[in-house]
C-alpha cells in the first residue's frame, strides 16, 4: 500500500521548490531593474552599444514574422466575427471586434508569444552556453557584473522592442480586418475606417502597451534566469531553454489575466 506521505511529501517539495524559484527570479529581476533604472543615476554606465545589438536581434529581425502572423490573426478574427455578425446584418461591427481585441489583447499576447519563442529561448540558450563554458565566471573574475553586462542590455532591448512590435501588430492585425471587410464583406474603406477609429479608444491602445512592457520584463527575466541556472553541458542548455519558453508563456498568460482584470473588470 502506498503511504499517504509518499504522495503528499513530493507535492510539498515541488511546492517549496516553486517558491524557491520564484524568490530567485524576483531577486534577479530586482537586481536587473536596479541596474537598468537606478544604477545609471549613480554613475554606472548603461551599455547602449550592447543593447542596440540586441534591439536588432530581438526587434528588427522579428518585424516580418510578427507582421505576417498579426495580419493573418486579424484576418481570421474578422472572418469568425463576420460569420456571426452577418446574420444580424451587423457586419460593420467586425471593425469594432477586430480593433478592440487586437489592441487590448491579441497584439500584445501574440507578439509576446512569438518573441518568447524567438528571443526568450535565445537568451536562455546564449546565457546557458556561456555558463557552461565558464564565460560567466570569466566575466566575474574580470570584475564585470554579469547582470549589467549580459542581462541589462537584453532587458533594455526587450523593453524597447516588444512595445514597438506590439504597435506593428496592432496595425497589421487591423489591416487584416480591413482586407476581409473590403473584399469579402464589401464594406467601403471609409466606413470601416471610421468605425475602427470610433471603436478604439486610447485606453485600449495604452493598456495593450502597458501589458507588453511587463511581458518584456517577464521574457527577459525568465530567459536570463533559466540561462544562469543551467547545470551540466549541452543537455542542460536544452532543458533550460524549453523551461524558459514554457514558463514565460505561462507567466505571460497569468500576467495578462491579472492586467485584464485590473483594467477592465466591472466587478
Amino acid at each position: 500500500m502506498i503511504k499517504i506521505d509518499q504522495i503528499i511529501a513530493p507535492m510539498g517539495k515541488d511546492f517549496l521548490v516553486f517558491f524557491v524559484h520564484l524568490a530567485r527570479i524576483s531577486k534577479l529581476a530586482g537586481m536587473s531593474l536596479y541596474w537598468t533604472f537606478a544604477a545609471p543615476f549613480r554613475g554606472e554606465k548603461l551599455r547602449w552599444n550592447l543593447a542596440s545589438v540586441q534591439i536588432v536581434r530581438i526587434g528588427v529581425n522579428s518585424i516580418l514574422i510578427v507582421g505576417i502572423i498579426s495580419f493573418f490573426v486579424g484576418l481570421i478574427i474578422a472572418m469568425q466575427a463576420a460569420y456571426q455578425l452577418e446574420r444580424f446584418g451587423a457586419s460593420i461591427y467586425v471593425a469594432d471586434l477586430v480593433g478592440v481585441s487586437m489592441t487590448r489583447e491579441l497584439a500584445p499576447l501574440i507578439t509576446a508569444i512569438i518573441i518568447t519563442g524567438r528571443s526568450g529561448s535565445a537568451i536562455a540558450a546564449e546565457l546557458g552556453t556561456m555558463k557552461v563554458s565558464e564565460e560567466i565566471d570569466a566575466l566575474k573574475t574580470m570584475a564585470l557584473n554579469p547582470i549589467g553586462f549580459l542581462v541589462v542590455p537584453r532587458m533594455l532591448a526587450m523593453i524597447i522592442a516588444l512595445p514597438c512590435l506590439t504597435i506593428l501588430s496592432d496595425l497589421l492585425g487591423i489591416a487584416g480586418g480591413f482586407v476581409l471587410a473590403l473584399t469579402n464583406l464589401k464594406i467601403p474603406f471609409i466606413a470601416y475606417y471610421n468605425q475602427t477609429v470610433e471603436a478604439i479608444v486610447l485606453k485600449d491602445f495604452i493598456t495593450g502597451l502597458i501589458k507588453s512592457f511587463f511581458f518584456a520584463i517577464i521574457i527577459a527575466q525568465i530567459g536570463a534566469y533559466q540561462g544562469f541556472s543551467v547545470r551540466g553541458g549541452a543537455e542542460g542548455v536544452g532543458k533550460s531553454t524549453t523551461t524558459a519558453v514554457v514558463s514565460s508563456i505561462f507567466l505571460i498568460i497569468i500576467a495578462d489575466l491579472f492586467f485584464t482584470i485590473l483594467f477592465y473588470s466591472t466587478l
Binding site: 556561456m130 563554458s133 565558464e134 564565460e135 565566471d137
Partner: peptide, 8 residues
Amino acid sequence: FQGSALFN
C-alpha cells in the same frame, strides 16, 4: 580557466 572560457 581550465576550458579557456573565451567569449565566443
